[in-house]
Design a binder for these strands. Structure first.
Lengths: 351, 351
DNA sequence: ATCTAGGGTGAATGCGCTTTCACGAGCCTC
DNA sequence: GAGGCTCGTGAAAGCGCATTCACCCTAGAT
């Protein structure tokens, strides 16, 4: 910058103005400066600017990454499916945030969280942004507590661990309730089995609550826990869960359920495959539903009835909240619940 | 930081050491500092650190975004499909770069490019990173020229506009040539039609060259240009192109082609739908191929024969190149060509 | 008891920019 | 023709950290 100033015969203040506020400099002077900058290959230092102006123009996102980064080639080679599906969630958030951020003139800094010492990636991100979003359960609450005192943080899709933070969830409970209601009222189904997972996310729990509520509303027995728990919320485990459910009713005299409601789409897709292998027809013999609305849900046979989450909007809303809070740091914590919509397809007996 | 130093009774130099090089500080002192930091909610400023140390620990990515950010809700509501598919490319690069970056201790700053004055997003990114990757045709060559004098830049998937930059491409030509050869030699097809687009990417052009080479190698007539050009490389346009191709042969006495080779998967998928509507069977009546290997290509009926691009690896390699150049700024420009692989599925008559 | 090493710490400098504040030159007003 | 204006510019003071360099203190060697 000093070089540019010298070369164009002005002071560094003027050079700065050319970049920050071009209109405040005479056109002729501006041209001189810009030309000098071009000749010298001048690239303004974001760090210096950030230091001096105390804003960075960058928003951040911390998200979990389930895959071990060192097992890269393995993951890429084999199981492109699950990987693909898992990607979708954070990828869509990234995309949503990126777009909204751009609309507001921000760039986006992303980092999958890693645990670490004081110099963890989270700290790195936190120090370089004007505000950031955190996917639930990716950053230790203690760290968040500290960081959120310095800059806006919005929590995405999880329980509200820190109550003075803005946070956004999707209407998991309402969505699953509505879906269940649909099965009961519109399809006349009575024996419903909800499939959760061993290690359940808060989202999955909320969905189960929706299921319970719908059962209660319809006067059906209200299970206190999922009928089956898959090991993880993956396709393979979903298939196993479906098998387990059917085995159970075949061996004993227990009647087979009329519907299986999975806590997410991936499990439901796996179940569809398992059922096909067994010769159980969907939806004639049994209805199957998922949750999330991943692209794959529409492509499987039969197309999966599910609850569509506005994931990308989650990202966009996160940015909106950050921008708003940046503009008004004092305002009360905001808690948003994004609406979901039941997508009725063939797997429940619709269309 | 000054506050932390004061509160823990040390100098700022020691506080700095606690974060940068914990081992150089006595454990007891370190604890004091860390506790003070916690109490004060201290978050180190990345800008200041960047300024002082002259490195940011961040890598960047500039990519194009075809969708208008202001048309957001519209895009989200309607055409979730195309959008989904388009996302994949840059999303996978993002994911690949993010992983590789994390492996090397870097965070990733992303920004879809926007044209603008001296304060464009590109400049913003450039000033905040240690190096970055650019998707072809997203940043004006002149800007790149300037920026690349200051920090490592690697160009992704395009022509080598600036020859002193590192750059990575995928083997478009080789892939399409191999695919075409497969159709000719293994399936005995002779009348092949390549479908390009009006505004073609260098990638699409390279693919067409591969097609030409295979035709020449087989002693078939070598077309000087694509048989049809779609308006854009989208699903809808692909369908139109397929229709146009068939209309042409039905009206006139020209024989219908035995195979349609599309410049990318999206167009091919659209074509598949158009053909189904017309009652033309694939692959019995006509073979169809794509390029890219997007997930959707495997899910359509019939599954699409295509050429799989290692997109995520593109991102990873980009990071590797950046890291290497950061370690050795003087080394000669590197040019990488990533191998592709023909994925034979039902749409060409295989399996 | 003196000397030497080396680990632990503080003082001071500068990284490259933004941002007052002050200043001069031209313009208008009365 | 003097006072007030605005516009364009320069001087200088930080922004929060990393990093010498010098210093002190303790331990082991002599």
């Amino acid at each position: 910058m000093y070089d540019v100033a010298e070369r164009s015969g002005v002071s560094i203040a003027t050079v700065s103005r050319v970049y920050r506020n071009p209109d405040s400099v005479r056109a002729q002077t501006r041209e001189k400066v810009m030309e000098a900058a071009r000749e010298l290959g001048y690239v303004p230092s974001g760090s210096a600017r950030g230091l001096a102006s105390r804003t960075t123009g960058v928003l951040g996102l911390c998200f979990p990454d389930y895959a071990d980064p060192d097992a890269e080639s393995a993951a890429a080679a084999s199981d492109a499916d699950d990987d693909q599906a898992v990607m979708l969630y954070s990828d869509q958030i990234i995309r949503g945030m990126e777009r909204a951020a751009r609309r507001h003139g921000y760039a986006l800094l992303i980092a999958a969280s890693l645990d670490g010492g004081p110099e963890s990636l989270v700290a790195k991100v936190a120090g370089r942004v004007d505000g950031f979003a955190v996917l639930a359960r990716t950053v230790p609450t203690a760290d968040l507590e500290v960081i959120s005192r310095r800059l806006p943080v919005v929590m995405l899709a999880g329980p509200r661990e820190i109550d003075h933070l803005d946070h956004i969830v999707v209407a998991n409970t309402e969505g699953e309730r509505e879906l269940t209601r649909h099965l009961i009222e519109d399809h006349g189904l009575r024996r419903l089995a909800f499939v959760g997972a061993e290690e359940e996310s808060p989202d999955a729990q909320a969905r189960f609550r929706g299921f319970q509520e719908a059962c209660r509303d319809a006067g059906l027995p209200v299970p206190s826990r999922p009928e089956v728990r898959a090991g993880m919320m993956t396709q393979a485990e979903g298939a196993l869960a479906a098998d387990a459910l059917l085995d159970r009713s075949e061996g004993t005299g227990v009647e087979r359920p009329e519907a299986m409601l999975f806590a997410n789409d991936q499990m439901a897709v796996g179940a569809l495959q398992a059922l096909e292998r067994r010769g159980v027809r969907v939806p004639e013999d049994i209805a199957v539903t998922g949750f999330d609305g991943i692209p794959l849900s529409r492509l499987v046979r039969p197309p999966l009835t599910t609850v569509r989450q506005p994931i990308r909007q989650l990202g966009e809303q996160a940015v909106e909240l950050l921008v708003e809070r940046l503009a008004d740091p004092g305002r009360a914590p905001v808690s948003l619940e994004l609406p979901v919509s039941v997508t009725r397809r063939a797997s429940c007996g619709c269309g």
